[in-house]
């Protein structure tokens, strides 16, 4: 069982959350010519890191907010959690 510290609600079990994938993926900027490669990287290609991974979760059975979680994909250790609009530093 993972325990995720929701920045809005505090420590909750993983059962209250749903997963949203790699949070480092950025949508290509609008209002410019975007090569297909950039769209591929946005839609399909993932680093899928072993180790520290920044990812999106939604507190779907709680405050329903999207949050960012920094988690180790090999040990499941959770290092930090952020609000969705907080920049990862």
């Amino acid at each position: 069982m993972l325990y995720i510290n929701c920045p809005h609600c505090g420590m909750r079990s993983q059962n209250e959350f749903s997963y949203g994938g790699d949070a480092s993926v950025k949508r290509p900027d609008l209002n410019k010519e975007i090569p297909d490669k950039e769209w591929d990287d946005f839609v399909y290609n993932r680093k899928s890191l072993r180790g520290k991974h920044l990812e999106l979760w939604q507190h779907i059975s709680g405050c329903r907010q999207w949050i960012k979680v920094e988690r180790d994909t090999a040990t499941h250790e959770i290092f930090r959690t952020f609000k969705a609009d907080e920049e990862f530093a």
């Binding site: 069982m1 993972l2 079990s13 993983q14 059962n15 749903s18 997963y19 994938g21 790699d22 899928s48 890191l49 072993r50 991974h53 990812e55 988690r71 994909t73 090999a74 040990t75 499941h76």
Partner: peptide, 13 residues
């Protein structure tokens, strides 16, 4: 299990 994992072991939920 529903999230990226290299753990080779699962969680109970």
């Amino acid at each position: 299990d529903g999230y990226n994992s290299y753990a080779q072991r699962g969680n109970l939920p």
